[in-house]
Simulated scan of single mutants.
Amino acid sequence: MSEAPDIATAWRWLLERKPGTRGAAHDALTVVVEAAYAEPRLRSLYPFPTHGTLHFLRGAPPWNEPGHDGLPFILYGGPPYKVYSSGYAELLGEAATPAEAAALAVAHLPEQVVTESGE
């Protein structure tokens, strides 16, 4: 399974459920992706679904540099939808809807999140 080459393509492939895209076959992921995409700060990050979670990375692959991760992520499959800090270090909260989970993730982003595109 290849990864999307950039942030915009990663979101488009997930939203369109492009065959072969990581997580595209999971209905529970789709509603979380749609809610996260509606949040401009999350939309500026690379969406990376893995093991029942939707992570937000600072840039597209290859991930050779440290610091590409380290942001909050959403455990989908709810409700409730759980939002954790990086590495499951802390449960940041639970939400009844995907939109509330996305807003909770945004609320726990660092003040300025710089992506590889400089946004």
Rank of each mutant, 00 (worst) to 15 (best):
E90S: 08
A103R: 15
P49T: 01
F56R: 11
E94F: 07
D6G: 11
G87D: 05
A8L: 13
V32K: 00
T115K: 06
P98K: 03
Y46L: 00
F48Q: 12
L29E: 00
L14K: 01
Y81K: 12
T53P: 00
H26W: 05
D27E: 01
A36E: 10
P79D: 02
H51M: 10
D6M: 09
L54Q: 00
T53G: 00
R22H: 11
H51N: 10
Y76T: 06
L57T: 00
L104D: 11
R17M: 06
G67Q: 03
F48W: 07
P19N: 03
A96N: 11
G23C: 04
W13D: 15
F73P: 11
S85T: 02
W63C: 11
R43W: 01
H26F: 14
H68F: 01
L15W: 08
L91C: 14
R12I: 01
L75N: 13
P80S: 08
A102N: 09
A4H: 04
P62H: 02
T97I: 12
R41Y: 01
E16K: 00
E3P: 02
P40D: 09
Y84E: 12
T50I: 05
A105W: 02
G93N: 03
P79R: 08
A101G: 05
G93E: 00
G77C: 06
V113G: 11
V32A: 05
P110G: 11
W11C: 07
Q112C: 06
P47K: 08
A96R: 02
A36L: 10
A105I: 10
E90F: 00
T115L: 03
E94S: 13
E16C: 04
H108G: 10
Y81S: 14
L75G: 08
R22I: 08
A10Y: 05
A36F: 09
A96W: 01
V114P: 06
A99I: 04
L71C: 13
G59F: 01
K18Q: 15
A28G: 03
T50R: 07
P79T: 04
D27I: 02
S2N: 03
P61K: 03
H51Q: 05
H26E: 03
A38K: 12
A89H: 08
S85A: 01
Y81H: 09
M1C: 13
L57E: 07
T21D: 05
Y81L: 07
T115D: 15
A95C: 04
E16L: 04
H51F: 10
Y81F: 15
A25C: 04
E94K: 15
H68S: 13
P98W: 06
A107W: 08
A107H: 10
P40H: 06
E16Y: 04
E65H: 08
S117N: 11
F56E: 09
E116G: 15
A28M: 01
A105V: 14
M1H: 15
S85W: 11
P49Q: 01
E34S: 10
